[in-house]
Design a protein around this nucleic acid. Structure first.
Length: 401
DNA sequence: TCTGAGCGT
């Protein structure tokens, strides 16, 4: 803010490359260029690094043919690049060639980092982009397949408006991507022809693109219509036959399994799948939390492994946050403890300041003190008092901190 | 396992 207002002309200024007198050929005194050139030769260049300037783009695009003008779009207030630009050629044919030759090529910034750009014809009508018509999704892509390779593979089925392989922060393929065709027919054709086929020896999936929101609601719908159940807290003496019998009462069971170890001993959980959702729901309603062979059954919708892992991860994170806020202001960290200092000695030192809810000297796997520990009080007042009194105080021969 | 982002003077 207070730094001297250094102007960085090249990052702000709109460079209108000077195209010698050739520009206003037909109507020298009419300010705007004849509309014939503008709409047909206007390219949209996306995925630009914010440091890319008009001048840098000019150098590249003017190699193809005479460029009429270039604009990097910027935030009205901050002037920061919005990451896309327009390149207007005088001749539509040059735009076509730029698409062929420069699309997916690297564009360098001043620091000489390279960025893949994505070039399309400027399409001011947002309708096509909004509807997702003709947009397809491809997964299980070999990691060697990049934007260009994807484009080349799918261009056989129709005009590709845009195409992209999803990548991680290092630019490595995530194994899936998108191809947006001009028409729905081209998309259908590509799906019919490529879905299930081998690309670089990998069997790819090709289907219509579904937006994240749509996808989630479909998933929720599927979850609501579950037929597969997960059962736990099953007495390990319960046999497969008894298990089957229990669940058969609620409908047509298509599969039922008590999980067992190598020796065939029950692991105390299992899965049951019904033909109909209503049957599965009934089994949950009637059996969950009921007594079976002396144990309270746990019966719920079975989760996919990934879904279960996601849930576990979330609850772990949540627990961590709760723990942190719970101990905020009442848990003390004490270091410089003598080696023979144990939990009891630590407690004895801090007991005078209040009620200690937990107290621990940390040790390595051999049981040797790490020289630090924690004391948790029941209230922040007590903890504050303990800090005031004990910080830097000598216990034995070392200072506690 | 994984279903983008995106259009001006």
């Amino acid at each position: 803010m207070s730094s001297p207002a250094v102007q960085q002309p090249e990052s702000v200024q709109v460079v209108e490359p000077t195209i010698p007198p050739a520009v206003p050929v037909t109507a020298p005194y009419n300010p705007p260029a004849p509309q014939a050139s503008a709409p047909s030769a206007s390219l949209y260049v996306g995925e630009l690094d914010p440091t890319v300037t008009e001048a840098m783009l000019f150098e590249i695009f003017n190699m193809i043919g005479p460029v009429a003008s270039i604009r990097v779009c910027r935030d009205a207030v901050t002037r920061r690049s919005l990451g896309y630009a327009y390149v207007n050629y005088l001749n539509a044919a040059d735009g076509e060639r730029a698409l062929e030759q420069l699309n997916y090529s690297l564009i360098k910034n001043r620091a000489c980092s390279s960025y893949l750009s994505r070039i399309m014809w400027s399409q001011r009508d947002p309708a096509l982009r909004k509807t997702g018509q003709g947009n397809i999704f491809i997964k299980n892509l070999d990691e060697a397949i990049d934007n260009k390779a994807l484009h080349d593979t799918f261009a056989a089925f129709g005009n590709v408006l845009s195409c992209k392989v999803a990548t991680d922060e290092h630019g490595r393929s995530k194994g899936y991507g998108f191809v947006h065709y001009e028409t729905a027919e081209a998309a259908d054709n590509a799906i019919k022809s490529v879905n299930g086929m081998l690309l670089n020896d990998k069997k790819v999936y090709v289907g219509h693109h579904i937006s994240r929101k749509e996808r989630q609601s479909k998933l929720d719908e599927m979850k609501a219509q579950f037929t597969n159940l997960y059962i736990k807290n099953l007495d390990t003496e319960v046999t497969q036959e008894e298990f089957n019998e229990l669940f058969n009462r609620f409908g047509n069971v298509t599969s039922a399994l008590v999980a067992t170890d190598e020796e065939g001993k029950s692991k105390g959980f299992g899965f049951v799948n019904y033909e109909k959702h209503e049957e599965a729901q009934k089994a949950v309603d009637e059996l969950h939390d009921t007594d079976f062979h002396g144990k309270k059954l746990f019966v719920t919708r079975a989760q996919k492994k990934a879904e279960r892992e996601e849930e576990l991860r979330r609850s772990y994170e949540q627990a961590k946050i709760e723990k942190m806020s719970k101990y905020q202001g009442i848990n003390l960290y004490i270091k410089n403890l003598e080696d023979d200092f144990d939990d009891e000695k630590l407690r004895a030192e801090f007991e005078p300041f209040g009620t200690i809810t937990s107290c621990k000297v940390m040790r390595d796997d051999k049981g040797t003190s790490k020289g630090f520990g924690f004391v948790c009080f029941s209230s922040p007042d007590e903890a504050t008092k303990a800090v005031a009194e004990m910080n830097n105080k000598m216990i034995g021969s070392q200072a506690a901190a």
